[in-house]
Amino acid sequence: MTKAVRLELNGSPVAAVAEGGENLLALLRERLGDTSPKAGCLQGTCGACTVLLDGEPVLACLTLAELADGRRVTTVRGLQDGPRLHPLQEAFMDGFAAQCGFCTPGMLIAAKALLDREPNPTREQVIEAIAGNVCRCTGYTPIVEAILDAARRLAGRRG
């Protein structure tokens, strides 16, 4: 059973036909060509596929594609404003918070969801927010520091 799915992807209206039971990750990567969410464990335990669905972080590998119909999806590709990187992306780069980069899109999206609801998070809140995202390279500390740094940058931008 196929189903037409219309959604807003990073601000643009898009549509694709999903197979019954197809997950949002496959829809994004294979049908809509947005490969920024990564396919890691495909069972909801690594966080690499995290995207925002109407602003809330979800695991795209465990979300049915058709549930995204009529809703807003934000991937890491939607973070930057034209050529201008999001403060989170800048902080990750400046703080050497990525090595192989496979977990980075999921980390950035999990961090975005945190900063959207809590612009001035504590270290504990940052750790809690990325607790579902596995990183094999960085030892997490640079990622936690980068998210705290991004919160300060965003605060500075708001003046």
């Binding site: 335990t45 750790i127 500390t141």
Partner: peptide, 17 residues
């Protein structure tokens, strides 16, 4: 058999280095 059971320290388990 998966990341639920293959244990690794998370961000809260990391000490100062």
């Amino acid at each position: 058999i998966d990341f639920n059971e293959y244990l690794m320290p998370g961000p809260a388990d990391m000490c100062p280095v």
